Amino acid sequence: MNELWPGADRECILDAEYRDRIVRAHRERGRKALRAVEEGRVKRYLDFFVVVGRSDEYVVEADFCTCSDFVFRGCECWHILAVRIAEETGLFEPFDIWYQDTWKP
């Protein structure tokens, strides 16, 4: 597996070395993702991960995100990176409810 994402068999610690590897690999997107994880803006619901951005919440599932960057460019955004980091480190806020039940139009 990619050395940046060691996988479920090994838990990562969000130390300086891990942060540096993320920033070297992903530059500004890596910085934004790390900031979101460190600030507790990654939430895990029963159905989705949600990353709280500057102006909205973005649903992330596998390699898909609802943000405009992902929708228009079709490549990995910083929200997806934040979820990967959160999964690897365990640094997310768990919610024992369905995100879809929290959504209000």
Results as ranks from 00 to 15, higher is better:
E3F: 08
V23F: 04
V52H: 08
E3Y: 06
V59N: 01
D9H: 13
F49G: 00
D96C: 05
W5Q: 09
R41Q: 04
I97A: 14
R41K: 05
I85T: 10
V71K: 13
R19Q: 06
G53S: 09
Y58T: 14
A86H: 02
P94Y: 06
F49Y: 02
S68R: 10
L34T: 03
T89A: 11
G30Q: 04
K104H: 12
V52R: 09
I22H: 00
G74C: 12
K104Q: 08
R73G: 14
R73D: 14
R27P: 01
E38P: 01
L91S: 11
C75L: 14
E57W: 03
A8Y: 06
F92E: 04
R10H: 04
V71H: 13
E87H: 01
H26T: 07
W98A: 07
I22T: 01
K104I: 10
E3H: 05
A86R: 00
G90L: 14
Y45P: 00
D69M: 05
R21E: 06
F92N: 01
I22K: 02
F70K: 03
R21N: 09
D9I: 15
V42D: 00
I80W: 00
F92S: 09
I22E: 02
A82H: 00
H79V: 06
W5P: 02
V71A: 15
C67E: 07
V50Q: 02
R84M: 08
R19P: 03
A25L: 10
E17N: 09
C67V: 10
R29T: 01
E39V: 05
S68F: 06
A8S: 15
P94C: 06
E39L: 08
E57H: 04
C65N: 04
G74T: 05
F49M: 00
G53K: 01
E76T: 15
G74F: 11
F48H: 07
E93G: 04
F92T: 03
P6K: 09
A86V: 06
C75G: 11
V51A: 14
K32W: 02
G53C: 09
E61W: 06
E3C: 10
W103N: 09
D15F: 12
V50L: 11
R54F: 14
D96Y: 05
C65F: 07
E11Q: 14
C67A: 15
E87R: 04
M1I: 05
R21L: 10
V37E: 00
Y58P: 09
P94N: 05
H79S: 03
Q100S: 15
K104S: 13
C67D: 11
D9E: 13
E39A: 11
P94W: 04
F72V: 14
P105D: 11
V71N: 12
R84C: 03
V60M: 08
W98H: 07
S55M: 08
V52D: 13
E11D: 11
K43M: 05
E61F: 08
I13F: 05
V42H: 00
E3Q: 07
C77A: 14
K104Y: 11
R10T: 09
F95L: 12
G90Y: 02
K32F: 01
R19V: 10
C77T: 13
D56A: 12
R10A: 11
A33P: 02
R10C: 08
R35V: 08
D101H: 01
E11N: 07
W98P: 00
I85D: 03
R24A: 07
G30I: 03
N2H: 13
V71M: 15
E28M: 14
L14R: 00
W78F: 12
L91P: 01
V83R: 01
E87C: 09
A16H: 05
E39Q: 10
T89I: 10
